[in-house]
C-alpha cells in the first residue's frame, strides 16, 4: 500500500492577471500519491486544487517542477489517467452506450473489447438506459455514465474534479457510496477535488488541505477510520473539526501578493 504511484515535485503554476502581476496558482507543491489510495484535495476557491488535478491529467503544464506517474513525466493527457469533470462531459450526440464505449473506439480497440462496455454499464447501474441520450438522464446518472466511461480504460488513477458538486444531497451520498464500491472492486487510485469536508473525510485515506495565494498544500491529514464510515462517529467528527480549523486558519491570515 505504500508504493508511490505519482510523484509531484516542486511544481509551480503561475498565471498573470490583467495588470501583469504574477499569481501563483500553485507554489512549490510537493506530494506523493500512493498506489491504491483515495486522496482528497480540499481548500477555498483559488487554492489551486483544480489546477493541480488538471496538471495531473496533463491538460495543463507547470512552469517549473515535474509530475510523474510510475517514473514517467506527465506532459499530455493519457487514458491511464481518467478524468471526471464537475459537469459530466458526455457527448450529447451519442447514446449512453456510445458514450461509455467511446474510449474503445478512440483507441480503435472496440471490436475485441465490446463486452467491457456492457460490464461497466451494469456496474454503474445504467442497464436499460443504453439507448438513452445524456439529456434524458438525471444528473446523478449522467455522472455515473461519465465515471463508467473513465473506468473503461482501466486507468491507473481516476482524477475527480468536484464530481458531485452539482448534485443534490441525496444523489451525492448515493454516488459517494458508488465511488467506495468502485474502489473496493477495482482498487483504482483516486484523487478527488472537493469543497465538502464531510465528503473528503467519508471517502479518503488522506486529505490534503490547501490554502490560496499562493496555492499550496498546508497540511496532509491521514484518515484512519477504516471502512464503513459513520458520519456521526467520534473519530469522524474530530477529523471534521480538525480540517475546518485548518481551513479557518488559512482564511483568517490571507497573504496579499499585491495591493491595488
Amino acid at each position: 500500500m505504500t508504493e508511490v504511484l505519482i510523484d509531484i515535485k516542486n511544481v509551480n503554476r503561475i498565471y498573470r492577471d490583467d495588470a501583469g502581476h504574477k499569481i501563483y496558482a500553485l507554489r512549490n507543491v510537493n506530494l506523493q500519491i500512493l498506489r491504491g489510495e483515495i486522496i482528497s484535495f480540499i481548500g477555498p476557491s483559488g487554492c489551486g486544487k483544480t489546477t493541480l488535478l488538471r496538471l495531473l491529467a496533463g491538460l495543463d503544464k507547470p512552469q517549473s517542477g515535474s509530475l510523474s506517474i510510475e517514473g514517467k513525466i506527465i506532459d499530455k493527457p493519457h487514458f491511464e489517467r481518467g478524468f471526471i469533470f464537475q459537469q459530466p462531459a458526455l457527448f450529447p450526440w451519442n447514446t449512453v452506450e456510445e458514450n461509455i464505449s467511446a474510449p474503445l473506439k478512440a483507441r480503435k480497440i472496440y471490436a475485441e473489447n465490446k463486452h467491457k462496455a456492457a460490464r461497466y454499464i451494469s456496474m454503474m447501474g445504467l442497464a436499460g438506459f443504453e439507448k438513452s441520450y445524456p439529456h434524458e438522464l438525471s444528473g446523478g446518472m449522467a455522472q455515473r455514465a461519465a465515471i463508467a466511461r473513465a473506468l473503461l480504460s482501466e486507468p491507473k488513477v481516476l482524477l475527480l474534479d468536484e464530481p458531485l458538486g452539482a448534485l443534490d444531497a441525496f444523489k451525492r451520498s448515493e454516488l459517494q457510496n458508488n465511488l467506495i464500491e468502485i474502489w473496493q472492486k477495482t482498487k483504482t487510485t483516486m484523487a478527488l477535488v472537493t469543497h465538502d469536508v464531510d465528503e473528503a473525510v467519508y471517502l479518503s485515506s488522506r486529505i490534503a488541505v490547501m490554502t490560496s495565494r499562493p496555492g499550496k498544500i498546508s497540511k496532509i491529514i491521514n484518515v484512519e477510520l477504516g471502512q464503513n464510515r459513520d458520519r456521526n462517529d467520534d473519530g469522524f467528527i474530530a477529523l471534521r473539526k480538525e480540517i475546518l480549523k485548518e481551513l479557518r486558519l488559512a482564511s483568517i491570515s490571507p497573504q496579499p501578493e499585491y495591493n491595488i
Binding site: 491529467a57 496533463g58 491538460l59 499530455k76 493527457p77 493519457h78 487514458f79 489517467r81 481518467g82 478524468f83 469533470f85 462531459a89 467511446a102 474510449p103 478512440a106 483507441r107 461519465a146 466511461r149 473513465a150 473503461l152 480504460s153 482524477l159
Partner: peptide, 9 residues
C-alpha cells in the same frame, strides 16, 4: 478535454 483524457487523438 474529456476525449483527450480517454485517449483520443
Amino acid at each position: 478535454e474529456a476525449a483527450q483524457t480517454f485517449g483520443a487523438q
